[in-house]
Design a protein around this nucleic acid. Sequence first.
RNA 1: GGCCUCAUCGUCUAUCGGUUAGGACGCCAGGUUCUCAUCCUGGCAAUUGGAGUUCGAUUCUCCAUGAGGUCACCA
Length: 479
Amino acid sequence: MTTVRTRFAPSPTGLLHVGGIRTALFGWLLARQQGGQFVLRFEDTDKAREVAGAREHLIECLRTLGLLYDEGPDIGGPFGPYTQSQRLDHYQQWAQKLIAKGRAYADPYSAEQVQTFRDQARADKQAFLYRNHRPQQPPIWDGTTPLRFKSDPKGYAWHDAVMGDLQTGPEVIDDFILIKSDGYPTYNFAHIIDDLEMEITHIMRGQEFLASLPNYLNLYEALEIRPPVLATMPHILAENGNKKLSKRDGAKDVLDYIRDGYLPETLVNFIASLGWNDGTEQELFTVEELIAKFSLDHVQRSGARFDEKRLEWMNGAKIRELPLAELYARSQSYWPATATAADDSYKRQVLGLLQERLKFLAEIPQLSAFFFTDLAVSPELISTNKQLQKYAASELAGWLQTSRDSLAGSDFSSPDLTDRLNALLETTGQKPGVLFSLIRIATTQSPASPALADTMALLGKDRCLARIAAQLAAFATDA
RNA sequence: GGCCUCAUCGUCUAUCGGUUAGGACGCCAGGUUCUCAUCCUGGCAAUUGGAGUUCGAUUCUCCAUGAGGUCACCA
């Protein structure tokens, strides 16, 4: 019994978005579940498309989500190097083996000539097959032209761990390029060599590779190696349209979500449940549960749409599950500038009141503003309030004055405030909707807040009375 | 155009021949002596279409339709 070894093999050509990370997540889950290894490998064979900083970004995404790899470019491992551009000698060796076997040959055509063939095929409404133009007597390969695989066209029937049993005819098999004229291997060649040498047991990848799979099977045969378990993942579709989720369509990358205050465990849970379920009605999973329950045969075969609303809901649910101390520790970088002077104990209590209404941590500044600074009196809060807009300023001022007089005698503990607020309903003869809205607006200058007594208790007596005074002054000028 | 894949509420999904087709998000309504939110209750909402197999099809087969992928010296 061999140990399970999975890999995530991105090319450093851009930022990693949620669609791309799912392949990594599933590979990681499987490796962890089976007690195997998860490998990171950079497929940097296209130097033209390489984006500076992409490697660091990919590593940061994996680390942030907790998808720690056991072997990789920056940490090494027994099968290194883990960067394809540093493995050119490996590909060269295997290429020579294929040449020796008569299964690889130099491409004698110029790019323009090949393009002509391609255009012709298109004009004939046919799929382009290079092998239809396979040269009779190709020149010796000197490394300055592409090296092509000499395919052996035949039909295949194979099993995909996600898609099930698949089959194709010989018409999809072609002489693809193994090594480009710049000396770098193509993905098609390099990944097969690397997965073999790194002893990868399960290959997970997006369905865009499904069409080339028969070609890989053909190459596996030529190399006389047994293919790993193949698992094809459906695409994650963008919110609008049916296109594959991509950066161009405004898809946020993983770190964007982290910056907005989505918890890593939310992202992991959400991405896992986009296209996978355990067969039950469970929606929320801890990472440990995912590791225990994940299985390739429960991966959905159809594409899933990314639903931000659902992600928000899930993040809110995860935030509420967190112990306050843990949530507070994670909230550090989200507090508004006005909170820097506040002490930890106070901020922690504020967070306690906010916890049940946060959807993501970046909402903290907006929801907590009035806890840290005195907001200016806003007449619109009253004029747009359904309960209050029908009363004259003098009436409101009267009730607020009565309230102030009572509150001035309070110790501002939450229970005492509750008692006094309830008593004030009697004294003023107003409904809670009216009186409490009035006091809330006076003390917070915000349209919404946590429960009134709790909010006032935390704000403290001095601050609340001062704010009520400011509101009364505004009423006076108004009248 | 060739080849391949897919198809259940608006969205994510359960069902592996027999269910009043279930759950979740969102939405709507109500409740939790105030707002926003949480929580609770209820409501709206789906098996793409047509044949066939079967006592019985969401489920199996075929066709159609729709969607996606692929046909690069990109991965």
